[in-house]
Design a protein around this nucleic acid. Structure first.
Length: 176
DNA sequence: ACCGTTACGGTTGAC
DNA sequence: CCGTCAACCGTAACG
């Protein structure tokens, strides 16, 4: 631990396993998802997955009450970088939700015209009705615990992607 | 002590 | 069905 950082250039930082010299690896914890780990503050997190919605909500709420990020970090046991990131995003977008994970870009490049049509399509199809359609048509994944916010978020992302793809499919020929 | 930034390993999901 | 790839995640550490 002592001589780990400092002289080591950032690019040459130790690997994840080497980053936890005391234990060899962060403590593993069993969660519904099965991959929980414990960070330096003692908080549980799942590598690669967003923090639970209620934690994100609490971070924003505390910041709203004027509580300093370092205090929030300690109290919620979330890394300071993460608190900073979530608050930054909240300031910029006004949303506490994480971005869409996974997926890849559609094959065809979108033209401004396509983007415009997508926006129109979204406006004509409010989220609430789409949510109902999605729920009845595709169901909801049951392999993990999801609160309403999470479900709505996934539906929104899913809808946006499908809408974009279908519209691009429709306009694809015409745009050439 | 605090906080913005970033390298890193990891997960996810469309293609 | 499966591998690839690019997007995002949170942590840990630097400055």
């Amino acid at each position: 631990m002592t001589a780990l950082a400092g002289s080591i250039p950032r690019m040459m930082r130790p690997t994840l396993a080497q980053n936890y010299p005391r234990s060899g690896f962060p403590l593993e914890v069993s969660t519904p998802l099965g991959q929980g780990r414990v960070n330096q503050l003692g908080g549980v997190f799942i590598n690669g997955r967003p923090l639970p919605n209620h934690i994100r909500h609490k971070i924003v709420e505390m910041a709203h009450h004027g509580i300093r990020p370092c205090v929030i970090s300690r109290q919620l046991r979330v890394s300071h970088g993460c608190v900073s990131k979530i608050l930054c995003r909240y300031q910029e977008t006004g949303s506490i939700r994480p971005g869409a994970i996974g997926g890849s870009k559609p094959k065809q490049g979108t033209t401004p015209d396509v983007e415009k049509r997508i926006e129109e399509y979204k406006r004509e199809n409010p989220v609430s009705s789409i949510s109902r359609i999605m729920r009845s048509k595709f169901g909801v994944k049951g392999d993990e615990e999801e609160d309403d916010d999470e479900i709505e978020r996934k539906e929104l992302e899913d809808h946006d992607r499908r809408a974009k793809h279908s519209i691009e499919g429709i306009l694809g020929d015409r745009c050439e």
